[in-house]
């Protein structure tokens, strides 16, 4: 099964489970949770089901394309089921079957793992799912987002696509994964990995990036005052990514670190609050369906 077929299988499977199949959100982010399709939609009482691939950038994990397991950008397959259905674990195991992973032939475990994202003011309880000892999915019941209790709890499934592909294709190196027949993951991304590593660790203009951070923050605040949620949230994401590059570059001292994190969290909280208010004012349109 190629990387592409893995994605297509998951898309088909979750489409049949009445999920919206969305496209990746077009602002840089470190995880699928940060997409507004998750971060905002998990708030409030309205039901929601969505699935999408999310390219996730983690500058600190960049390794110039030389490490067999770590990359600047990996791909998450993200599923949100809100409210979490009673058979959510069975639905998940069904998705593994769709990938040709028969639970009878393996050892699949749900091992306690509690998820927390300090920049988002979010946390949840759940597991990491093990396939024969390897973590392949993060499974979380959201409890708080943007500092607000989740009124209607969502289940979030985050598949690590590279891990799963390496397992299915029996590869020891992420760059050997076959994206499609004849094209490897390395062909597709190795150069990008090197360039982003070089940029994040060596070339990023920290002075400029610090000023970006300040500007993005100010713009997010200004826009939120105007009552526009999504444009403001885009700047929150930009703040977060800028912070991640600066962090990878070693430009943020440990003392400053907490300060930056709380600045991003503060913005995320403001956006979450505005979104909740907006949906309430709109009369929760998705509730009526």
């Amino acid at each position: 099964m190629t990387f592409q077929e893995i994605i297509l299988s998951l898309q088909n499977y979750w489409a049949k489970q009445n999920c919206i199949i969305a496209q990746p959100y077009d602002v840089e982010k470190g995880a699928g949770t940060m997409s507004p399709y998750t971060f905002l939609k998990a708030l409030g009482p309205e039901p929601w089901r969505i699935a999408y691939v999310e390219p996730s950038r983690r500058p600190a994990d960049a390794r110039y394309g030389e490490n067999p397991n770590r990359v600047y950008q990996h791909h998450q397959y993200q599923v949100i089921l809100k409210p979490s259905p009673d058979n959510v674990q069975d639905l998940y195991l069904g998705s593994l079957m769709a990938l040709g992973i028969d639970p009878k032939k393996h050892d699949i475990r749900f091992v306690e793992d509690n998820w927390e994202a300090p920049t988002l003011g979010a946390w949840g309880l759940g597991w990491e799912v093990w396939l024969d000892g390897m973590e392949i999915t993060q499974f979380t019941y959201f409890q708080q987002i943007g500092g607000f209790d989740c009124e209607l709890e969502s289940a979030e499934l985050t598949y690590g696509l590279e891990r799963i592909a390496m397992y299915i294709q029996e590869k020891d190196n992420v760059f050997d994964i076959e994206w499609v027949d004849g094209v490897t993951y390395g062909d597709f991304f190795k150069m990008a990995e090197w360039e982003h590593s070089k940029y994040s660790f060596e070339l990023a203009d920290t002075k400029l990036l610090f000023s970006f951070f300040d500007s993005y923050e100010a713009e997010a605040k200004r826009i939120i005052e105007e009552g526009l949620i999504l444009p403001a949230y885009d700047y929150v994401l930009k703040c977060s990514h800028t912070f991640n590059i600066l962090d990878a570059r070693g430009a943020i001292s440990v003392t400053e670190r907490t300060g930056f994190i709380s600045r991003v969290r503060n913005l995320a909280r403001m956006v979450a609050q505005a979104y909740l208010k907006q949906r309430e004012a709109m009369g929760y349109p998705l509730l009526k369906k």
Partner: peptide, 15 residues
């Protein structure tokens, strides 16, 4: 299918 499980675990530990 215990051999499949064994190989999977060996691979993870090796990494």
């Amino acid at each position: 299918y215990i051999d499949i499980v064994r190989q999977g675990n060996e691979k993870v530990l090796r990494a």
